[in-house]
Design a binder for these strands. Structure first.
Length: 281
DNA sequence: ATATTAGATGAAACAGCGGT
DNA sequence: ACCGCTGTTTCATCTAATAT
């Protein structure tokens, strides 16, 4: 899987692109592009990588990604199909200076925040989802107004969180390749122990150089990153099956319960069994 | 029996330094 | 500007004991 700058075809008659994507037909790698991207997950679940951020996504979730923010929505292996609704638009899709007029103040702020990637709450997501569906069936000015309505809704929403931390933006392709390799390796091997030496070898660096590099690029240290991946996997196992906590612990790459509990609580703020209870019906 | 907490200990993150 | 080495600090993991 190669990382690259994605080129998006802009149809002559419209200033932005909106489309429905169904995997396996459309699987994007770790990439970035100059357009803003609004993603709505229609179905399927998996893991999102946005800048230095990692978390699980599932149906109905809505994210706004700023220009040049590297991202990758990777569906789970078990999932046969994933579907999403995506809108791509450039900052100047309304003309160069349109954003500067006072009425656009809030939108401008929204764009600024989206440079780190924004994740919206369920209520906003549901409202916007309906508007996105409408947009797909519109043409001409109606379509444009739909997009404006969506941006308005987003800019007024108070239920959102930042995905990435600042300044992980605009890296070269080579850099992304290297990070991609590291991500790939961790995803394939998190069920076993991953030593700093190992991953440093994958990245062709000395352990100390690797630590420095990783921290620099992702603003978090390597073990923290691996833990996020492990805990997110554990969460799904806990909801999905009736496995014992100790089994899930093993399965997620933790080799003793003590540490599992500690790390789990740190990320989720609940003990594994509490988490299971909360998400079971 | 299984899950959770407390405390000890060893690995790795980090900053400083000098070399290329 | 980047790398590897070194000493210090921080933090994950382990043992053992406690709680459900």
């Amino acid at each position: 899987m190669k990382s690259h700058i994605q080129k998006l075809p802009l149809p002559e008659q419209s200033s932005f692109v909106a489309d429905r994507y169904i995997t396996p037909y459309f699987e994007t790698p770790w990439h970035y592009h100059p357009e803003y991207e609004l993603v709505l997950i229609i179905h399927g679940k998996g893991r999102r990588f946005v800048g230095d951020h990692v978390s699980d996504y599932c149906e109905g979730e809505l994210d706004l990604l700023g220009p040049s923010l590297p991202h990758w929505y990777r569906k789970d292996e078990g999932e046969k199909q994933g579907g999403s609704l995506v809108i791509h638009f450039r900052e100047e899709f309304l003309g160069k200076d349109f954003l500067q007029i006072p009425e656009m103040q809030k939108i401008l702020l929204l764009f600024e925040k989206s440079k780190m990637g924004l994740h919206f709450g369920a209520k906003t997501a549901a409202n916007v989802a309906a508007k996105m569906e409408t947009l797909l069936s519109c043409t001409g000015i109606d379509r444009l107004m739909c997009l404006l309505a969506i941006l308005k809704e987003l800019s007024e929403s108070t239920e959102y969180s930042m995905l990435s931390s600042p300044e992980v933006i605009g890296r070269s392709n080579r850099e992304n390749d290297r990070l991609q390799k590291i991500f790939d390796y961790v995803l394939a091997n998190f069920k076993q122990e991953i030593q700093l030496q190992e991953i440093a070898r994958i990245a062709m660096m000395s352990p100390s150089s690797f630590s420095r590099y990783f921290k620099n690029r992702t603003k978090k240290n390597f073990s923290h990153f691996v833990n996020q991946i492990r805990v997110s996997h554990a969460c799904r196992q806990l909801i999905k099956g009736n496995f014992s906590i100790s089994y899930v612990c093993q399965e997620s790459g933790f080799n003793n319960m003590t540490n599992f509990n500690k790390q789990f609580r740190k990320v989720v703020k609940l003990s594994p069994s509490q988490f299971r209870q909360k998400h079971r019906v």
